[in-house]
Design a protein around this nucleic acid. Sequence first.
DNA 1: ACTTGATTCTAGCATTGCTAGACAACCAAG
DNA 2: CTTGGTTGTCTAGCAATGCTAGAATCAAGT
Lengths: 192, 192
Amino acid sequence: MSVQERKQRERAERERLILATARELAEESGWDAVTTRRLAERIEYSQPVLYSHFRGKREIIGAVALQGAAELAVALRAATSAADGPRARVTALARGYLDFATRNPAVYDALFQLDGGLAYAQEDTPEPLKDGFAALLETLGEVAGDGVHPALFTEVFWASLHGLATLTRAGRLLPEDAESRVELLVDRLAVV
Amino acid sequence: MSVQERKQRERAERERLILATARELAEESGWDAVTTRRLAERIEYSQPVLYSHFRGKREIIGAVALQGAAELAVALRAATSAADGPRARVTALARGYLDFATRNPAVYDALFQLDGGLAYAQEDTPEPLKDGFAALLETLGEVAGDGVHPALFTEVFWASLHGLATLTRAGRLLPEDAESRVELLVDRLAVV
DNA sequence: ACTTGATTCTAGCATTGCTAGACAACCAAG
DNA sequence: CTTGGTTGTCTAGCAATGCTAGAATCAAGT
């Protein structure tokens, strides 16, 4: 048995290596640069090995997205926990979210821009994704306002953040006024 | 001279054909399906002809994006002109925007998701893009609220709409509650 | 030592964006 | 009409992509 166990361990280790390398490559030069050949070369295996772990490139993106969702949830909870009062928590949440998108553009792309073959907003949505949304909901639910469904409010707030994040990163919005935009958004949307 | 003029006309006509076909193909099966080979075949010319009109695929996307920007501006002005009062105009604007994104997903992608090699939010930004933003500003400037820069407010509102549009289309938000989200957004962001 | 079964690699397919160089069509001058 | 040159278009090909079939290799158990 121990032989098989060792093999399984090694296999799991290699899978981690693949994902870490894919992410590294993507953050370095974008997901377009993550070709199966380059990835295979970096992990010092041949291409077909990748396909023994993942169905294809899409599934690799999906796996990175799941990692990212978990990290995003952690980052959001860390950001809000330091703040006092609902209003301050929402501001911290917004800043934390945009910060995450700026600092991990490739992971953010995997999560919300690219096709990783994941199911969103459904029953079979993977746990990390649900938890990411839950992290948003925890803080935003407090400021949804009377008669407004917390989940609906969270969706709208999230969409706004997402819009700011993507438009800024795509050069459609200048980064200078990022902070003013966040303040305006929180001021208007959150009911305190 | 008339010979040259005819040739120029024919050339311009063919350029229109290329763009219309690219757009058609993109709306049919997404921009990934718009390959230079398929495009060339549809217009019944060989691939290199495309490169005598555009530097490459990116520039074709950019050209479609410019068309789209002009159409979006028209659509937004048409939507708002029928509404009475600032509040109704903003609602109409939001609906019109999301409608445009839903009805022309490929064009919307060319405009705001893909790289068409265009400059945004700068001096050398092409006129149609500036005008698209202007169309938003005309209606949103009215409801920015005291002490809030109209352009800043427009950016935030636009980002929210963009977030709703992209997340919905990518399956990250369910389309059922689209209308509720718009109402909530307008209610909170617009100062009437 | 040998066989068997899993694992990994080499080599290749079809498709992509893009381009060089051959070829043909056309127009102006003789 | 013929010729010469320009302009335009096409054929053929490159390197890179995602993915896969089948050969080669390695390790485990007898």
